[in-house]
Amino acid sequence: MEEEWDLETRAVRAGIHRSAFNEHAEALYLTSSYVFDNAQQAADRFTNREPGMIYSRFTNPTVTAFQERLASLEGGESCLATASGMSAILTVFMGLLQAGDHVVASRSLFGASVQLLSGILGRFGIITTFVPLSDLAAWEQAVRPETRLFFVETPANPTMELVDLTALAALAHDRGVRLVVDNCFCTPILQRPLELGADLVVHSATKYLDGQGRVLGGAIVGSMALVMESPIYQFLRTAGPSMSPFNAWVCLKGMETLALRLEAQCARAQQLAQWLEQQPGVARVLYPGLPSHPQYELACRQQSQGGGVVTFEVKGGQAAAWNIIDSLQLISVTGNLGDTKSTLTHPATTTHGRLSDADRANAGITPGMLRLSVGLETVRDLQRDLERGLG
Rank of each mutant, 00 (worst) to 15 (best):
F110I: 13
K207M: 04
V152C: 04
M255K: 05
N323Q: 15
Q98K: 15
H352E: 04
G338R: 01
V63L: 09
S373K: 04
I126E: 04
R388G: 06
D6M: 10
A88Y: 00
N38R: 07
A112Q: 07
E23Q: 14
I120W: 14
M243N: 02
A205T: 13
A358W: 13
L149I: 00
I16D: 07
P188K: 11
F124Y: 15
E50K: 14
A27L: 11
V181S: 08
P347Q: 02
L165W: 10
D381S: 15
Q303Y: 11
S32Q: 13
E8I: 10
I220N: 00
P61V: 01
A137Q: 15
L290H: 00
S304H: 05
P132A: 08
V63P: 09
T9F: 05
P347M: 02
H203S: 08
A219P: 05
F110N: 06
Y34A: 01
H352P: 01
R107T: 08
I365T: 09
D6T: 11
V202W: 02
A99I: 05
S134A: 14
N336P: 01
Q279T: 05
V379N: 09
V379P: 06
H346I: 11
S32R: 15
Y29S: 10
T9G: 05
G85H: 09
S244K: 04
L258F: 03
R371C: 03
M53F: 10
A65F: 07
R371K: 02
L355N: 04
T257Q: 12
R380C: 07
G125Y: 07
L258N: 03
D326I: 00
R10Y: 08
T128I: 01
V181E: 12
T129V: 01
R268G: 08
A264W: 07
S356D: 11
F46D: 07
D6K: 14
F124H: 15
C251L: 00
K207V: 00
I89R: 03
G306Q: 01
A205N: 12
A142G: 07
L209N: 02
T351E: 01
V12I: 12
S230R: 09
F150H: 02
T154A: 06
D381R: 15
M255T: 04
V310M: 00
E161L: 07
D199N: 13
G218L: 03
G389V: 08
L168S: 02
L344S: 09
D357V: 14
Q67N: 15
L121R: 01
D44G: 08
V282L: 07
N183A: 15
A42Y: 12
V63N: 08
A320E: 02
N157G: 01
Q383W: 03
L196V: 08
P158L: 00
Q295K: 00
L96P: 01
V227Q: 08
A83D: 05
S134I: 00
R69G: 07
D210F: 03
